[in-house]
């Protein structure tokens, strides 16, 4: 007997999602985003999604395709280009709702969700307008002698998590090879319905660790529903050391976003086809 194999296609993963779901997306800004899965959501008939993300072009693309009802994020950025054009346009037009948190509050929200706790206390957010624009946020007083008032950051509960890793096996164990795990482990632990891992390369379990340390095995199969191999699947975001950010393509993306006709051409050229077509068009 062996552990269950969980290899799926991109379309099978996206086909398992439903409109109205809350989806957590790993990575950070324009770094190690599961873009192949995001692109497939854009091509799908899914709608009315809520996305929880340290936002980058994942949020931007989903905004551009009108897939989102709400964005829950501490920021949306392309890193080397500070502002995300599609997210900005969606905010300006009022087409999406936005829940804005501090990035530390956001991490505590992920910790709470991963531990199935209703909230975790933090000082981050106190005194700021994050409290004003989130009128449901409550504070809690320490029951100990200090009596300190803290923000009760609610769990960032999500139906589904999508993350992109450097390596994975067919069971859903996954490894990162870059300098930062981001909060991807918390996303897959937080999801209550399913967690999906896309990876640069599927390898045998025996080869998963190669010469590395066990700490680089960030994600355990116990939290993973399905895994799919999407070489260069984080493009155009970073996925060190497999590939860096495609800065030229990111600039092209931003430039196209500024003009509806240019964006239409960009979509036709790169995004209307499947992942294979995207990879061929962006080589």
């Amino acid at each position: 007997m062996t552990a269950p194999a969980k290899v799926m296609s991109i379309d099978e993963i996206v086909g398992s999602l439903a409109s109205g779901m809350t989806i957590g997306i790993g990575g950070w800004g324009s770094r190690r985003k599961p873009m192949a899965l995001v692109r497939a959501i854009c091509r799908s008939s899914l709608t009315d999604l809520t996305v929880i993300s340290y936002g980058g072009p994942d949020v931007g693309l989903l905004c551009a395709y009108g897939k989102l009802r709400r964005v829950i994020a501490p920021f949306v950025t392309l890193d080397s280009i500070a502002l995300e054009p599609h997210f900005r346009a969606a905010r300006r037009s009022g087409s999406i709702a936005f829940t804005e948190y501090d990035e530390g509050m956001f991490m505590f929200g992920l910790y709470a969700a991963a531990h199935r706790l209703p909230f975790l206390p933090t000082r981050a957010g106190l005194g700021s307008d994050v409290m004003r624009v989130n009128p449901d946020l409550r504070t809690v007083r320490s029951p100990y002698d200090d009596g300190e008032e803290l923000v009760a950051m609610p769990a960032l509960s999500m139906d589904v998590a999508l993350v992109h890793m450097n390596r994975a096996d067919a069971r859903g164990n996954a490894r990162y090879l870059g300098p930062d795990p981001y909060l991807d482990d918390l996303f897959v632990k937080a999801a209550t319905t399913a967690s999906y891992v896309s990876c640069e390369r599927l390898v045998d379990t025996a080869d998963l660790l190669e010469d590395g340390h066990v700490q680089s095995l960030l994600i355990s199969r116990v939290h993973v529903t399905g895994v799919t191999e999407t070489p260069r699947g984080a493009h155009f975001t970073t996925c060190e050391p497999d590939h860096d950010r495609d800065e030229a393509f990111q600039r092209e993306y931003v430039k196209a976003a500024a003009d509806p006709a240019e964006w239409e051409a960009f979509r036709r050229r790169y995004l209307d086809g499947d992942e294979k077509a995207y990879q061929e068009a962006t080589q």
Binding site: P74, F75, V76, R91, R92, E100, M105, A124, S128
Partner: peptide, 21 residues
């Protein structure tokens, strides 16, 4: 107006926590 801003910037990022902690 935050509800429908003239210009959306980065978002709060770590600023609330940084300045509080």
């Amino acid at each position: 107006d935050w509800e429908r801003p003239k210009s959306q910037l980065l978002g709060a990022r770590g600023a609330p926590g940084n300045t509080r902690c």
